[in-house]
């Protein structure tokens, strides 16, 4: 049952990414490129996605998930260097290719060699992340 609803959610996610144009790198880079022909679409996508999510979060209060277990706890409100550094690295790559993890998977069937290469490199980066994290912790502890 969990797997069925996860499949359904992934399907909705992929449909939304495709219809909204987020699998098109020119659209994403067009939004980031404030000095070029600026494309505001991404802001509409974000707004359209945040609204149902905000309603869903309100609905979680005093309830449990439909398939049992517990909802995620209150968000940690403290910032740390890994959050900032990671987001900066992610942003650099996002701007460079115009792809982030969700659209990378959603466009894998029609993204050609570039799409496959991006996904393989992304997986390699994700596999390397635990080691980078450990090294960073060492650096932070030494300072």
């Amino acid at each position: 049952m969990r797997n069925l609803f996860a499949l359904l959610s992934g399907s909705l996610f992929g449909t939304g990414l495709l219809l909204s144009g987020m699998t098109d790198t020119t659209r994403v880079q067009g939004w980031l490129d404030i000095f070029g022909a600026w494309d505001p679409t991404l802001a509409f996508v974000m707004g359209g996605a945040i609204l149902p999510m905000a309603i869903a979060w309100r609905f979680t209060q005093g309830r449990n998930p439909g398939l049992g277990g517990q909802f995620p706890g209150k968000p940690v409100q403290r910032l740390d260097s890994k959050l900032i550094l990671g987001s900066v690295l992610f942003g650099m790559g996002w701007g460079l290719a115009g792809l982030c993890p969700g659209p990378a998977i959603a466009s894998l069937s029609f993204g050609g060699i570039s799409g496959l290469t991006f996904a393989a490199a992304m997986a390699a980066g994700m596999a390397a992340a635990p080691f980078v994290r450990t090294r960073l912790d060492g650096v932070v502890a030494a300072v």
């Binding site: 550094l85 990671g86 987001s87 900066v88 690295l89 992610f90 942003g91 650099m92 790559g93 996002w94 460079l96 290719a97 792809l99 982030c100 993890p101 990378a104 290469t117 991006f118 996904a119 393989a120 490199a121 992304m122 997986a123 390699a124 980066g125 994700m126 596999a127 390397a128 992340a129 635990p130 980078v132 994290r133």
Partner: peptide, 10 residues
């Protein structure tokens, strides 16, 4: 780009 996105997001 893929490497940066992979390491950065994690």
């Amino acid at each position: 780009a893929g490497l940066l996105v992979g390491v950065g997001t994690r």
